[in-house]
Design a protein around this nucleic acid. Structure first.
Lengths: 344, 344
DNA sequence: CTGAAAGCGCTTACAG
DNA sequence: CTGAAAGCGCTTACAG
């Protein structure tokens, strides 16, 4: 039915070993022989069976995933998705090893990366802290032929093979457009609350937001950014104080975590002049707030997709196979109350 | 390293054939024997290698995809994605057969479905026309043990095993909320243009849109629906006439195809009082219109994702394996000019 | 530079 | 009810 290596060997008049050599671009085949085999492959319309190839190689893929031990809901769901993906991957000969490191701790991350250099897995995925020591550790990895992939937060200007995550600048601009369009009848002030601007993705989101706001909706004043360090209680206090002080706030962009505090502050505020709100990450808190009308739009990235994508990309790197770009593009998702997935 | 059937056979004191029987739940094993094998599997932490299993079965999966030969951009990209997926699938032992039928032609669809009953592929994916004859053809398929999956447009109350597509009612509600929030400062009229309300998904989108509009933004009058039959020229004419006649139109929801005509009509209209516009499907025309500010938001479904999902679901059905629900959920995507993918 | 043989982990007739 | 043997499509030492 479907031609196999045997068919090629027969029509090219060579052995299986030789077919395999040209199939995998290994040396030690005369140009002429190589040509005959290639010709046979083309004329028969050969397509290699990757499952059989992997089986024959008997290879077990080993991938390390290095995560910050952050307790925010997004990191939690990322870890949950990884665990269930790891279980499923076992039946496809990939073994996943999860390494937790203290959050925002550059030293710990470098150490974990170095540990990989010694254990030599086939690939590593990590949530980057964007500093030079991390960049150097990444270089050491690629030096050892270990494919590295950044997850959620990228490592700029580095040797990582791929970044699995959203474009945070674009996310910020998207938030600006949503708020700008939502608040088009007004010209009040816009507030922004972040976790910390020291975090790369938060900074990027803010930059994108501020730039788009200034360009396309200049009538709105952007208030000095508030830093809530992703903690609900702190966010609640900051937002409550702000709303009490400034009655002209028409829009609010929450670009970090700690949304439980945000929602509490909004609910406590007079429903007459609540601001229009765009927040990040879909979880139980933001979904509920969307339904109640406290938050008007949520920007999100799909943790499950990110995990599956990282594994596919790592596997493709190990096998030197191409990826399907459309499948690995992580979208900036926008949720209103109406397009939330049912089961939440 | 990873335990295999041999390990189980040895520790349970049985042959490979017996291990295989309990592994695949086949009859002809004494309860006691079955128990011993199960125990061995658990104690060793056995996980079956699906690649090896498929190879041994030597099975070639055959799936039929039945598409309307519609020329709108969405159907085009659906077909393009299918072709590239089909090529890749070959290396995973799945053979895809594309069948084109005249659009909206229930008889042709039924005929194509019946042809499947004879050719007996392992599964069928089709864009449903929602009528009883189609439902009956679907019953015949399941009667033959052929797994059927609907794509893009569902077949209500039927024996299809799965629906790959978006919730069109929710899409309509999402459009209503976007327009309602965008136009919150005003109370003008809202226009809706569809392909044809005889098409199931268009009707669903309209129903969702009208319901959400009435409930949450009752200040806006909804004008009688316009039917452009997904043709650019017709849509252009209808929209031009409308905008000329009614200067109070603040919002427009285009829930079908033919957006090239929509964009022309908008561009020709005085830029002072252009309406806020939400349209469906991301393509070259709508992407460009987003960038130029003629369209403000685009609702979309990812054709590549839908095709890959259909294939995965069909394969899982054939193997009686579970799917990963989160991976198969087709999202209602929202695009603003800021979160468009780069390469368009 | 090339080939014969064994093996990857599973399944499938077939025999008993 | 159970097992021995061959085979799925590829790869890998090893020998020449």
């Amino acid at each position: 039915m479907k031609p196999t290596v045997h068919d090629i060997a027969r029509t090219a008049g060579v052995s299986l070993a030789t077919v395999d050599r040209v199939l995998n671009d290994r040396p030690g085949v005369r140009a002429k022989t190589r040509e005959r085999v290639t010709e046979a492959m083309n004329s028969l319309g050969y397509v290699r069976d990757v499952g059989a190839a992997n089986l024959a190689r008997g290879k077990l893929y080993q991938f390390d995933f290095i995560f910050p031990d952050n307790e925010n809901t997004f990191m939690q769901s990322l870890r949950a998705e990884l665990e269930s993906a790891a279980e499923r991957s076992l039946s496809e000969r990939v073994l996943i090893n999860v390494v937790l490191v203290p959050a925002f701790d550059e030293g710990a991350l470098v150490e974990a990366l170095n540990a990989c250099v010694n254990r030599k897995p086939d690939g590593v995925a990590f949530v980057a802290v964007d500093t030079d020591p991390v960049r150097e550790a990444c270089v050491r990895l690629s030096g050892q032929g270990i494919h590295a992939v950044t997850l959620v937060s990228d490592l700029g200007n580095s040797t990582r093979a791929h970044y699995v995550g959203i474009d945070n600048g674009a996310a910020g601009r998207t938030a600006a457009r949503l708020l700008g369009l939502f608040a088009s009848g007004t010209n009040g002030a816009i507030a922004v609350i972040a976790g910390s601007l020291k975090v790369h993705d938060h900074q990027e989101r803010f930059d994108g937001f501020a730039a788009a706001m200034k360009t396309d909706f200049p009538q709105h004043e952007i208030l000095p950014i508030l830093e809530g360090f992703d903690e609900g209680a702190r966010v609640e206090k900051l937002v409550s104080e702000l709303l009490a002080k400034r009655s002209d706030v028409v829009g609010l962009y929450s670009l970090g975590a700690g949304n439980s505090g945000l929602v509490k502050a909004l609910a406590a505020h007079s429903s007459i002049n609540r601001p229009l709100v765009v927040a990040h990450e879909r979880d139980a808190v933001t979904s509920q707030a969307l339904k109640e009308g406290l938050i008007h739009a949520v920007l999100a990235q799909d943790a499950g997709h990110e995990i599956r994508s990282a594994i596919r990309v790592l596997k493709a790197s190990a096998d030197r196979l191409a990826i399907v770009p459309g499948q690995e593009h992580i979208r900036i998702e926008i949720f209103l109350k109406d397009n939330l997935p049912q089961l939440d």
